[in-house]
Design a binder for these strands. Sequence first.
RNA 1: GCUCAAGUGGCGGAAUUGGUAGACGCGCUGGAUUCAAAAUCCAGUUCUUUCGGGAGUGUGGGUUCGAUUCCCACCUUGAGUACCA
Length: 1137
Amino acid sequence: MQYDHKAIEANWQKHWAENQTFKASNHSDKPKYYVLDMFPYPSGAGLHVGHPLGYIASDIYARYKRHKGFNVLHPQGYDSFGLPAEQYAIQTGQHPAKTTEENIKTYRRQLDRIGFSFDWSREVRTSNPEYYKWTQWIFIQLFNSWYNKDSDKAEDISTLVSIFETAGNKKVNAVSDDEIQSFTAAAWKKFSKKKQEEILLQYRLTFLSETEVNWCPALGTVLANDEIVNGVSERGGHPVVRKKMMQWSMRISAYAQRLLEGLNTIDWPQPLKDSQTNWIGRSQGAMVSFKVLPNETSEEKEGTLSYKKIEEIKELRQNSPKATSALWDVLRKKKGAVKFRQQYILGDFLTDFVCFNKKTIVEFVGKEDEIARANYFASEGYTVVYITNDEVLENIDTVLSKINNGIQFPKIAEQQKVAKKKTKKGVSTPINHQIEVFTTRPDTIFGVSFMTLAPEHELVSQIVTDKQKKAVNEYIEATAKRSERDRMADVKTISGVFTGAYAEHPFTGKKVQIWIGDYVLASYGTGAVMAVPCGDQRDYDFAKHFDIDIPNIFENADISEEAHEGKEGTVIANSDFLSGLKYKKALKLAIYELEKRGIGYGKINYRLRDAVFSRQRYWGEPFPVYYKDGMPQMIDVKHLPIALPEVEKYLPTEGGDPPLGRAEKWSWNTKTNEIVDNSLVISSKSSRAESRGEKSKDNGIYPLELNTMPGWAGSSWYFNRYMDPTNSEEFASKEAMDYWKDVDLYIGGSEHATGHLLYARFWQKFLFDRNIVPVDEFAKKLINQGMITGTSAFVYRLNTTQLKQSVFVSKSFIEKAIKEKKSITDYPEYEKIRPSIVDSNKDKKGVFSFATDGETSWSSFIPIHSDVSFVNTSDELDIEAFKNWREEYKDAEFISEEDGTFKVSREVEKMSKSKYNVVNPDAICEEYGADALRLFEMFLGPLEQSKPWKTSGISGVYSFLKKLWKLYHSGDEGTFVVSEDKATAEELKTLHKTIKKVDEDIANFSFNTSVSSFMIAVNELGALKCDKRAILEPLAILISPYAPHIAEELWNKLGHTASISTAEFPVFDGKHLVESSKNYPISFNGKMRFMLEFPLDMNKEELEKAVLANEKTIAQLDGRTPKKVIVVPGKIVNIVG
RNA sequence: GCUCAAGUGGCGGAAUUGGUAGACGCGCUGGAUUCAAAAUCCAGUUCUUUCGGGAGUGUGGGUUCGAUUCCCACCUUGAGUACCA
């Protein structure tokens, strides 16, 4: 019998299915092992050969682990909610459930053909109500939880309520919305129910908020950041704009730090960890608040405060008399509200000390222009406290109290009240604003020479001076118009506008200009930066562009060309108390000082934003939520699942509501706990009720949420469901989860690094906090399989309008024309077909007037993808098949090679339907079999690497399978024969060499090299004519994870009734590999020249002697004396001459 | 720009506690078998050569008796990210 892959594979696939060979048990004495693939989205295109790569690898691993005595869980399912089915539904009206069902059937058929050892009894589908019941359940758990920073975990919302009831919220240390009013326990109890709910919503782990979202008008939905690529939607490439919408969000930011730390405990690929680290974007630094100076003072001095003048002031400072410095010491160290600046320009006068906040000036008496000064200061509303040098030097405390008495406390307090009122009304007020900034370099704070706010920053309109108002508004408008995409496109352009306002430097008291610029992002940090042009390139560029001062605060740093961004080794200079310190120390001291003076504090910032969880789509999980008085209410878990309603169309409503807005029966009856008809809703104050008109009485029927959950909801916990997939009482039983715990090996694509894999870790940690799952990381080890790229085929069409039909030109013909710099018309091949292709009615002039240089002549051809199935392994195109492919090519003409063939050019591209380069695994299974496909996909190269598919290569593994088959069969008939004789030493050596290699390779996930060693083993055993059961039986087990069908067939023929999948893996025995001699490579100056065989037990000296005595060595040395001889017994001999 | 990964024959790739570069396979060349083809089998296949040899793992340096492997600088390609303060 010859090797008949079709019969063998069909037979065993049927056998495995019927006997449930791979069904995993939740009760076993064996150790558990959980091997998981990222479940697929069942697309309409079906599988191509690139898809199963990871599944084959995980299947090999799962089968190997079974041989090694593990109880293996290896499930599969479908991520079956998603956009393509919905898009198809919009176009055709076909219900997405139906499309999905059909696609799943195709997937299953294709997967079954490849012989995977999946336990299909555990299949899950995210779009199945029995599954999404639990997705909704998790959502409710999140809603009922808050993040307690003190215990550093999520807790039930009831613990938060009890804190509120006893102590208000002052001491609550939670991850919550940014702005929360504080209240006492008494106040909490007095709040209305609705008010309490509003407050709680600000703490819940899933919450409703008006968020600026990525709105994609073409898709009619909101997209997550990871669903946007280069400013357009990942699917379809539609433009995306920013829009404010009421959305559900997930407080993933609460877990930022733990998500980061958890990476150290899991064995995931470094690049993937890096990109999660990057995405979380932890940066350590400080918050610093800058006071905005009142406009009256700053505005008038605008222009007079030149940098030259500042330099003068600096000079003056250094020359301060003793008394001045003594007083300054005291004033400066004084904490709190009363903050003085030293020697500051006010109008045309240089003050000794001034406090802008309290409008108080402290002056030494005896200035030449005393009267003019006094008048000016008074007119500006300042109080002046006069002191003398002697007073200061004699008793500085008396002076201090004198100053304190003079400070305008009451007046200012009043002023502030007025200002606050004004602000509330929207009237701009020049005083008492603070700008909070986040910085990672508080050590460079003395280098601040200006500040920049994001154009959207809320303070901009309040601090801008009348003079600058116009320019600022114009700039803000211009920025708002620019889309994200435009902004990204020109990173280089520096733009910004001065607001006219100034802030006060918290340490030096120096005036700092406040600018706005779109290089500052409203969404990161506080939307404002303190600009340190000498230490940050963007600030530097901005300062250069607008001619702003760039003070240097680094020792020995050249900042004439660019900013000095280095940290290590940098010494801070010109920075008061920080001068002379290195980066690390300066950083710590700066934060310490900021905290001490109450003007800032150390802080860790994360780039990770809370995840928007609402989608305006139909084909997703509905929220178990209804609205009462505008507040969201969870439906009791015992009424889950809330199943998707039927709609007549899958588009958003005319009113802009999501597709669920079209459902007629989509309201919740809180009395009967049923979904009821919308017309029954008469309760007031719900957003939808309002639009339908107010009704008189609340009947307990409320509108349901119209959004659905995003694609990542169902995939964020499915690995837990496989442990107990049919449980209708629980998410999964505690017993099952305690047994399986987590995924031991997870295989899937790296494209999910910042999506699925981050969200899944987040949910797992949350579920862990709430004692639902036993571990807080769901996958111990993860491997990213590389992509299998396709080899596209291109044909070239002449690009002219004056032809009756398409004309295609063979590959080398075009290459020739380009090389020879000629036009196609210069060749006789063209003349032959010319009469039949040129339309005589059209102008013939310049039909093929190509430019003669190589580059531009290409523009006269258009490369067109040909379906790869029309091309054979020698790149020849099947012209007839190509013509029949498309109506437009029916009469096409072809200019062929000289040998009459027509060749295509090849290019490696991503495998995709639109590039006509997909290879269907079904066709491969048909022709070569699943075992050949599995071996070949592994043989292509390292699992993690991306590699091109070339079908021609499969003949190698196919003939390997035939040779393997032959080892167990003999004669022309191919009768199955094995001998019971003892195996020879040589045969045992081959076997054990292979066992060792395969064991190591699987441990390293180096599947490509084990296929090589199988080939070597079979070649060697073939040469030895080995037919011993003692060798061939273990060999079948070795190969069975890779090529399970042929192995199972041979195993059966060897007389076993049980499946090979449970056979024990052969054990390596080193004694078969022991050698007595070694063929030494003899090298001269490191270059190997020849081999000499010596016994392995020879020592260094003996070896050296023997080698030097050898005639080949003597010949190679040619009379020279070796300087040195390196002998490594068992390895090499190197002679240095 | 930043972060990461990778550069080895015509092609996919192998070789790392530093020790014979190109395993294994595809493709190609020649031969056997065949009326012929497919299939199968045998031999060869890094480049170069005056057939002694010489050169060679992206480029240039370095460490070493010896470097694809370690170190430094650079170039190229791919992936991710994008004004993150």
